[in-house]
């Protein structure tokens, strides 16, 4: 028998579930409309390219340090671990291949995307959320300045342009790190390292696909960051919650998209 109050609790739980689902669907729909609106309003981002360059400084240049340092260390770890495993099978000559392929195909775009989400994405969300909280966005609308064109679109394009560059820098630094550890420290032959790498990394199959991945991640992360900021409840709590959601959602989206893209790109390889 279900008693009265138990029924009430059950009803509340189901209502909450439905409410969350509807809210989620509503947000996805709004995010898609927001994405299209940003694309439609991006004329200003290119006509007044100075605005985009300013944002590229904040999203791209200021993310450089973390990207370069992490790339170097990831590459060095790959060099050490790869050598450890490969030398067991007497094939340490494949170290260059291992380091380059794992960086260019996967680690470069994905880790740069994750770092980009936490370094630049959170900053974008906090900035726009705070602009909304302090009613700067409404003030712009009062002055007949479209905040989508003036504030959001330049940040969007700055993120989309910066992300592939950051991913390429990450991969390049990683390969340098792998070279430093593998060749300089451990003593794998330098010629084999580079020639094995060049023999197995294909420009279109591997490098170009990595660049496509990083562009997609850039689109996803910046859209999520901008949307979360734009949609944040105009309170201090709201902004902090939106910032957290940006990092969590965009990290998950980057990893999920990576699987989908990899399945598309490398399925027909063999």
């Amino acid at each position: 028998m279900i008693l009265g109050w138990e029924r009430e609790v059950l009803k509340q739980a189901i209502e909450n579930l439905g409410n969350h689902t509807i809210q989620g669907v509503w947000r996805i729909g709004f995010a898609c409309r927001f994405f299209l609106a940003v694309l439609l309003h991006s004329g200003t981002a290119f006509r007044r390219f100075g605005l985009t360059i300013r944002e590229m400084y904040f999203t791209g240049v200021l993310s450089l340090i973390i990207i370069l340092v992490s790339g170097l260390f990831v590459g060095m770890v790959l060099g050490l671990q790869g050598y450890e495993t490969l030398q067991r099978y007497g094939s340490e000559s494949a170290l260059g291949t291992l380091v380059a392929l794992s960086l260019v195909r996967e680690l470069g775009p994905v880790l740069a995307g994750l770092l980009f989400a936490s370094r630049a994405g959170s900053a974008i969300t906090a900035e726009i959320g705070l602009m909304k909280t302090t009613e700067q966005l409404s003030a712009m609308e009062m002055m007949a300045v479209d905040p989508l064109a003036r504030v959001v679109a330049p940040r969007f394009w700055a993120g989309v342009i910066s992300m592939p560059l950051l991913a390429a820098l990450f991969s390049a630094m990683g390969i340098l790190g792998g070279y430093l550890v593998g060749v300089r420290l451990i003593g794998v032959d330098e010629g084999t390292f580079w020639s094995q790498m060049q023999g197995s990394v294909d420009f279109t199959q591997d490098i170009l696909n990595g660049v496509i991945k990083s562009v997609v991640f850039g689109l996803a992360v910046t859209t999520i960051a901008l949307f979360e900021g734009y949609d944040a409840p105009p309170t201090a709590e709201g902004v902090s919650g939106a910032t957290t959601r940006t990092v969590v959602t965009s990290s998950l989206v980057v990893l999920a998209l990576d699987f989908v893209l990899t399945a598309f790109m490398f399925r027909g390889l063999n």
Binding site: M56, V61, S162, L165, A168, A172, Q198, F203
Partner: peptide, 29 residues
């Protein structure tokens, strides 16, 4: 100064892409 930094960033990024294309990869086709 800001423009200079962004310019450096873009050049470094393109340089990294070139490095990947020329030194790491090869057009095997």
């Amino acid at each position: 100064v800001l423009d200079l930094w962004v310019g450096l960033f873009v050049i470094a990024g393109i340089g990294a892409l070139l490095f990947l294309a020329l030194k790491v990869g090869s057009t095997s086709t």
